[in-house]
Nucleic acid binder design. Structure first.
Lengths: 147, 147
DNA sequence: AGTTTCGGTTGACTTTGTGAACTGATTTCG
DNA sequence: CGAAATCAGTTCACAAAGTCAACCGAAACT
């Protein structure tokens, strides 16, 4: 499927998948979010992706404004840095991580823990209403509104 | 990439992508979640996916326990129904939808609205601490803990 | 009874991903 | 300083995955 196939769908999920739908993209983003900047070879070795495909994915991610290609300070080598658009993907990635932990449990798996920087208390992804009260999934209604 | 490539990564995000990483899978799940049960032809026409690939994806989703293949009541025709494992993906899909709305805005796009069934109040995805207080993304620390 | 719809399957073709080897700049080391 | 190693890719042959159109038997309308 080409990304243009997705683009025809007038749905924000399909639109998100224009940028994220390729097979390795979310793992590249995950790795990019784990440090201030990341190098080509670091990504290639961490993921085991083929080098030419990694090249293409990085070009796409830079074009999409999700990563920035920057020089490493004090050297002429390159690195990739997450943008705000990338940092906002933490919600998506953490939602996936918690689904993965729940539904594909494996004792060898690393656990992803989210805590509050200021207090150290554990935090969770949840639905909240305007008063800040937690709303259980069973009480959430999803509607698609045409523009 | 074969799904087994993902499986080698001991990370819950990679594990989630074993089930979800194929190109059309999340859109199939999105459509499956939009009604009690959905037919093969409905999916094929809604997505524009090729029929033989849809067949393969549905087999995978059933094997993964994300969809169930059921008979339509009062007929011998088939349909696919979301399981609990599938319903838990609403968090992932809604996180993607809100990212898509924010970062790939388009006036023609349908908006996805989440409201509280009981009160009708709008609800949002957010991080909350044990007291139920909302925690801004900038105050969330993510750590990967080895088992 | 004949036609349409459904839920696929089949097979030829195109696109995408893989793996290994190569390249020309940088950096490190003796 | 010169040689070797590392970096960030590129190239190319091959394998895997997706697309499109045509076909199929069973079920459902008419």
């Amino acid at each position: 499927m080409s990304t243009s196939t997705y683009e025809k769908h007038l749905c924000p999920v399909a639109q998100a998948l224009v940028d994220l739908g390729d097979q390795w993209t979310l793992l590249i983003v995950r790795d990019a979010l784990s440090q201030k900047q990341i190098r080509f070879n670091e990504l290639q070795e961490s993921l085991g992706i083929s080098r030419n495909l990694l090249t293409r994915r990085l070009v796409q991610l830079v074009e999409a404004g999700i990563l920035e290609r920057v020089g490493v300070e004090g050297s002429k080598r390159l690195a990739y840095q997450p943008t705000d658009k990338c940092r906002d993907l933490r919600l998506v990635i953490l939602a996936m991580a918690s689904w993965g932990e729940k539904w594909r449990p494996d004792p060898r798996l690393t656990r992803v823990e989210t805590t509050r920087k200021s207090t150290g208390a554990p935090v969770e992804l949840a639905f909240v209403d305007p008063d800040g009260a937690r709303v259980p999934l069973s009480d959430v209604r999803v509607t698609r509104r045409r523009p």
